[in-house]
Amino acid sequence: MKLEYFLDHMPEEIQRQTTHKIYLPGETIVRKGEEVKHVYLLQKGETRVSNEFASGQRYTFASLGSSDLIGDLEVLAGQKLYSASNEAVTTTEAIVMRAETFLQWMQIDNDFALAVAQQLAAKMYPTSNEAGRIKFLPSLHRLHSYLLKRLGDIETDLFILHTSRQQIADDIGTSVKTVNRGVIKLKEAGFISLLHGKITLDKNQQQMLKETFSEE
């Protein structure tokens, strides 16, 4: 459902109970383990959804954007704590409402309740599918798959990955140390090169990576 629908159909009694907030890149909107007090309706920007573990590792498993909701899953599941952290990737604007206000809106607006249910289903299916698949992949295979995904259909003589090792580790659910070991192995095997610490692939390496480590 488009953002315009939510805004145009928001009852006045609900609108009076909401506020508008802006989050700068890198700013945390909600943190895993914090008490669930609010639901956020994103208007603009992009956020990163991640899980942090006792080992200190962080796994980024989804991104959210305009018209997406944060906190809806926890509120509807009756959970008291946020299940994942959500951080602004770009400047992000959101309409913020108390959990009670969100539930009130769903109770008085059947169309809104249906839209939330449909959005939850669309959001959770690919997330759970990918998270379950990647959990059992060896860390080196995860790195192979990640590089293939980032390379995509790009056609260039020299592909340069500007993503930091920490971000790569977050994205594939492992540690920086493990990523570094994988990078060294791929470099020694001739599949990648390094330029000022950045992973690079020339045309031959791109083809080698695609032929040898194609995704399932």
Rank of each mutant, 00 (worst) to 15 (best):
Q17E: 14
T19L: 14
H20E: 13
I22P: 02
I22W: 09
P25W: 04
P25T: 04
G26W: 03
K32A: 13
Y40P: 06
Q43A: 08
G45D: 05
E46F: 09
R48N: 07
A54W: 07
S55V: 00
R58V: 14
T60E: 08
F61A: 07
L64C: 11
G65E: 10
D68G: 01
K80I: 07
K80R: 12
T90V: 03
T90E: 09
T91L: 13
T92R: 06
T92C: 07
V96K: 08
V96E: 12
F102Q: 01
W105M: 02
M106K: 14
Q107H: 13
A115V: 00
A115C: 06
Q119D: 13
L120W: 02
K123C: 01
M124P: 00
Y125F: 12
R133P: 01
L140S: 06
R142P: 03
L143Y: 01
H144V: 00
L147M: 00
L151A: 08
D153F: 13
D157W: 02
I168P: 05
G173L: 03
N180H: 08
R181V: 13
L186F: 02
A189P: 07
G190T: 07
F191G: 03
I192Y: 06
I192A: 10
L195G: 00
H196Q: 10
K198G: 01
T200A: 10
N204E: 15
Q205F: 01
Q206W: 11
K210R: 15
E211A: 13
